[in-house]
């Protein structure tokens, strides 16, 4: 674990009252030009992607590719085993009797797609990541209960501890807190 010097402000956290307030706040933060911010909630909020100006996740394409790779390797394995490496006459059927290979092809395709869906989701989210500046805030434990928060990270080009704090208060944020190791 990297020990950061105490007192170094890594970002700001502000609490909002409700999903509606969080969506409204997200729109204002987006319009103010901040890029490195996030809106934390205990459950996904409908219409938040548009409010934050986020595009659709690319995960679908990644999983689709994995499904194709999985299904082709499943079929390829059966073709290789049954025609090249260990050809065996079974009830007079052709070596490559593809109809019989459908269940395993499908199974391997699903297996790789499902694994990719979870692993890909974690990778796109940068998880597992045990430490993050937001965890320095005591109140952040409410983000998985009933708290709605906006966090703005210090490496955002527009970030200025003083001005950003004022900005978060002006859009209705409560409990504005500087994120730093104490």
């Amino acid at each position: 674990m990297i020990k950061l010097p105490a007192g170094n402000v890594l970002g700001l956290l502000a609490r909002f009252d409700s999903p509606a307030a969080l969506v409204a706040a997200a729109e204002k933060v987006r319009d103010a030009g901040y890029k490195k911010f996030d809106c934390h909630s205990p459950f996904p909020i409908h219409s938040m992607d548009a409010a934050m100006g986020l595009k659709r996740s690319p995960l679908g394409w990644i999983v689709g590719l994995a499904a194709v790779v999985g299904a082709s390797s499943g079929l390829g394995l059966q073709w290789f085993a049954s025609t090249v490496d260990y050809p065996l006459v079974i009830s007079g059927k052709p070596f490559f009797s593809f109809q019989a290979y459908v269940p395993v092809t499908f199974g391997v395709g699903v297996l790789l797609a499902a694994t990719t869906a979870l692993v890909g989701m974690l990778a796109l989210n940068g998880l597992p990541r045990p430490f993050h500046p937001v965890f320095y805030a005591e109140q952040f434990s409410k983000a998985s209960d009933d708290g709605f928060f906006v966090s703005i990270e210090a490496d955002d080009p527009l970030f200025d501890e003083e001005r950003t704090t004022q900005f978060l208060i002006s859009i209705g944020g409560g409990n504005v807190e500087a994120l730093c190791r104490d």
Partner: peptide, 16 residues
């Protein structure tokens, strides 16, 4: 896994 419930995570999560 360090889940933070941020919408940047939820959008991948919901699609997954």
């Amino acid at each position: 896994m360090g889940w933070r419930g941020g919408n940047r995570q939820w959008r991948h999560y919901e699609l997954a």
